[in-house]
């Protein structure tokens, strides 16, 4: 069977590599100092999608992302690895969304794409670490969900067999399509970018990414696959009251920078005398032993 697969991908600030200048003096996040990357777990999801495409010739993989126009970069990175196409949801009305409003927007886009057999996404994004969007998209679409997937073992006869990692163990489940699957960061890593595909899609852009008097205008007319789909709330028949800040039940009351209370500490060397002295002190005060 051929599969129509959508991979949910998010452009995130690289919170794993937070440098000294990532926080401003006032204790707020300096987003400009953090590089924007393809959310790591979403790459694992993309790999599972590309493997299914190889196993089921004729299948297609589309990247779906929501964000500002520059998030078009995420679609290109997906195309460089073997995705066939991409959709960017971008609209001021999507801004300020919590996970529920994000899921609503993604679900409306998936409905608009239509006929999707499998929606794959990373287990969670590193900027929020919530793991909520996958299950909420599934619920909004009335689709079955399988979270924490380690590997999609097989898809046939309208069913997927999936290995999951669960607390303290593993589980193998069989679930009917259409299906939403979230993939762990410990699943197989994504293949690297393919040079041939980089050449092919280098100039692929969403309309809003293009400057006026674009020097590549002739190229776009000649090669339609270089124009990536870009949708607003209206394009996906979305209800503005369920999008962005308006559609978000949660509110951020306060945000604080973390300041750990520095303690008065005793500094020792690695000398025998210092180490033995510390051990004796801890034993005599019944802290250890």
């Amino acid at each position: 069977m051929t599969l129509k697969i959508v991979v949910l991908a998010k452009q995130v600030p690289d919170t794993r590599n937070v440098g000294k200048d990532a926080m401003t003096a006032e204790g707020t996040v300096n987003r400009a100092a953090l590089p924007a990357i393809f959310n790591p777990d979403d790459l694992n999801a993309l790999e599972q999608a590309l493997r299914l495409k190889e196993q089921h010739p004729g299948s297609t993989v589309a990247i779906l992302t929501m964000g500002p126009p520059r998030a078009g970069e995420i679609i290109r990175q997906g195309l460089y690895r073997g995705a066939d196409t991409g959709y960017l949801l971008t609209d001021r009305l999507f801004a300020g969304a919590d996970t529920l409003a994000t899921s609503y927007a993604l679900a409306t886009a998936i409905r608009k794409i239509g006929g999707v057999d499998l929606v794959l996404g990373g287990r969670q994004a590193i900027d929020g670490d919530t793991a909520q969007v996958g299950p909420q998209v599934a619920e909004k679409l009335g689709m079955t969900q399988v979270t924490y997937a380690q590997e999609i073992l097989d898809v046939k006869d309208g069913k997927a067999t999936i290995l999951r990692s669960i607390d303290g163990g593993v589980e193998t489940v069989e679930a009917p399509l259409p299906l939403v699957v979230t993939v762990n960061g410990t699943a197989a890593p994504c293949r690297p970018q393919n040079v041939r595909l980089v050449m092919k899609y280098k100039w692929a852009t969403c309309p809003s990414e293009r400057p006026e008097n674009d020097p590549h205008a002739a190229l776009y007319a000649e090669r339609p696959y270089l124009t990536l789909t870009q949708w607003t709330v209206a394009d996906v028949d979305g209800d503005p009251s369920q999008c962005g800040f308006a559609g978000s039940p949660t509110r951020v009351k306060t945000v604080q920078n973390i300041v750990f209370q520095a303690k008065e500490s005793k500094t020792l060397t690695a000398s025998d005398a210092d180490v033995e002295g510390l051990v004796q002190e801890l034993i005599s005060e019944k802290i250890i032993g």
């Binding site: 996970t99 793991a131 909520q132 996958g134 299950p135 999951r164 990692s165 607390d167 039940p249």
Partner: peptide, 23 residues
């Protein structure tokens, strides 16, 4: 905030349109 809670919580919150905060 276990594998089960993080599978179930978001699905329930979406169904009831209520806010959920993880971890």
């Amino acid at each position: 905030a276990t594998v089960i809670g993080r599978d179930l919580g978001p699905r329930v919150s979406s169904s009831l349109t209520s806010g959920l905060t993880a971890d």
